[in-house]
């Protein structure tokens, strides 16, 4: 167990060592007013993430993980502190922080391609129509929907819908990719497939990513660093764990890694206390 790296030390992650900081949360606070007085969800939360780093956040339900993510996305107001993305303070939501929601949240009246197009139009307004269509098709092809450009969400399975959700997020070319329990609603087989797919595309795009999850194995498999949040109220970061497995990863190698079960039991131990 002593071999585990609990403090952030980028020397074991040579690919991140000289990368600039992409996202910084300083003294983050979130208070929800209730009839019985204020409920403090997050208090004085600090978090620094480097460019191209993949971080997963794990914690019990209601600990404020999703609150943190929606605050970074700009969909939830801060009660205190600030969030800086690529040197600029976050004021509201924007396509530089793409979100993959737990439910696919595709617009049901649009086809898969149109669902991507609506975002691509916003991000690349100066490109020609053909170029924008090309971008949509490229990412839909990447997520394995090369034959389903013109299908509507109702004609796609839940797993396929979430593939479109991933494609939509990547097509925005965001600075930060925010994943809010992206595979929580899927069955375990589909979940595995989509985790592989996510890592595959992420490996190519090298986008800073934050994934919220309930699933200990998922958090290890995906991330360079797992952040464990204490239970609310007054939730903060309780512990961190660096996962120095080599990239690109594949599931078999990760599962067979001699340290894998040490990491796993460390995380489970944290969650059970």
């Amino acid at each position: 167990m002593e071999a585990l790296l609990k403090k952030v030390d980028y020397q074991v992650m040579p690919h991140l060592e000289d990368k600039p900081v992409m996202l910084e949360c300083q003294g983050l606070k979130k208070v929800y007013p209730t009839p019985k007085g204020d409920y403090v969800v997050l208090d004085d939360l600090k978090l620094t993430i480097k460019q191209s780093e993949f971080v997963s956040i794990i914690g019990h339900s209601g600990c404020g993980k999703s609150t943190l993510l929606t605050m970074i996305a700009g969909l939830n107001e801060l009660s205190g502190g600030k969030i800086i993305v690529d040197g600029l303070e976050v004021r509201d939501a924007g396509p530089d922080r793409a979100v993959v929601f737990q439910s696919p949240s595709l617009l049901p009246w649009l086809t898969a391609q149109q669902n991507l197009m609506i975002g691509v139009n916003q991000v690349f307004p100066h490109g020609s129509k053909a170029e924008r269509v090309e971008i949509c098709k490229y990412y839909l092809d990447k997520v394995g929907l090369g034959n389903d450009f013109n299908k509507r969400p109702s004609e796609l399975s839940q797993g396929m819908q979430q593939r479109v959700g991933l494609a939509r997020a990547f097509a925005l070319k965001p600075k930060v990719l925010l994943l809010d329990e992206p595979f929580g609603m899927l069955d375990s087989l589909t979940r595995g497939e989509l985790q592989d797919l996510l890592l595959e595309i992420w490996q190519k795009e090298q986008i800073t990513a934050i994934a919220i999850t309930h699933d200990v194995d998922e958090s290890i498999f995906l991330a360079d660093r797992v952040i464990m949040m204490t239970s609310g109220p007054y939730a903060k970061i309780g512990d961190e764990l660096v996962i120095p497995f080599e990239r690109p990863r594949n599931r078999k190698d990760v599962l067979e890694h001699p340290d894998y079960y040490d990491y796993r039991s460390y995380l489970l131990n944290f969650l059970n206390h």
Partner: peptide, 8 residues
């Protein structure tokens, strides 16, 4: 939320 993220 989609509309907000896309800044429509």
């Amino acid at each position: 939320n989609v509309a907000k993220v896309l800044k429509l």
